[in-house]
């Protein structure tokens, strides 16, 4: 892999949905450890985030992750990029906590002992061990988002993308999840409305009406975002 291939690269990316432009002329090279994406509802920021893991493929232009094309190599890209959704209820696909964490590993064709070991390790790391056998729907909102995070990280991605991960959480759980995201060793990209989440981030991108209107260190970018709102 060449040095220039590292990181996430958007080149001339456009996206249309139902004939309506969603994203226009996006050129980005994302290499920083902590990157925030902010913007109003319908600005295109969630679409931008989804492109990083191939959930949405661009209508025009290319997106590459560590040199892998998200359109042609979606499967490999998804091993690199873990995705956290806003509503963990829709992200949890297995009936119990333990089964859900093991699900991603089972898709990788690992053997049973390896899956069991890595699952219990992940449950332990996120303080979910006591809840392992619990049906997922009996968890609290914060616990569900913890489970979503554990199930994504157990597979060992190099990048974590989170789409408004704290919108449905109370203040305490917001701090908990934000703290965990910031402490990860992976590259973390967070789409958010909640500017407090971006504390300690390296770079913030402001999206408005499908275009990048600011892209800078947090203080400068957020000032641009706030002036956009007023």
């Amino acid at each position: 892999m060449s040095v220039s291939a590292a990181g996430i690269r958007f080149e001339g990316v456009t996206h249309d949905f139902d004939g309506q432009p969603v994203l226009r002329g996006i050129d980005l090279h994302l290499t920083e450890r902590r990157i925030g994406i902010v913007g109003a509802n319908g600005s295109g920021k969630s679409t931008l985030a989804r492109m990083i893991n191939g959930l949405v493929t661009p209508t025009g232009g290319t997106v590459t992750v560590n040199g892998l094309d998200v359109r042609r190599q979606a499967k490999l890209v998804r091993r690199e990029v873990g995705f956290i959704f806003t509503n963990p209820d829709n992200q949890i696909v297995m009936p119990t906590v333990q089964e859900d964490v093991a699900f991603t590993l089972r898709r990788r064709g690992l053997d049973a002992t390896e899956i069991a070991a890595r699952t219990s390790e992940a449950l332990d790391r996120f303080g979910l061990t006591d809840l392992a056998e619990r049906p997922a729907h009996r968890l609290s909102g914060g616990q569900k988002q913890l489970l979503a995070l554990a199930a994504v990280l157990v597979a060992g991605p190099s990048i974590v993308v989170a789409d408004e991960p704290t919108t449905l959480l109370d203040a305490r759980n917001t701090r908990l999840i934000t703290g965990l995201l910031v402490s990860l060793t992976q590259q973390v990209i967070v789409v958010t409305h909640d500017l407090e989440v971006l504390d300690g981030f390296d770079r913030v991108i402001v999206v408005d009406e499908g275009r990048v209107v600011a892209d800078d260190v947090p203080t400068t970018a957020l000032a641009a975002y706030l002036s956009l709102l007023s």
Binding site: L55, K75, R78, G82, F83, I92, V93, F103, T104, R108
Partner: peptide, 8 residues
């Protein structure tokens, strides 16, 4: 979408 994101 979540199934796809998780490799299925």
């Amino acid at each position: 979408e979540a199934l796809a994101a998780r490799g299925l």
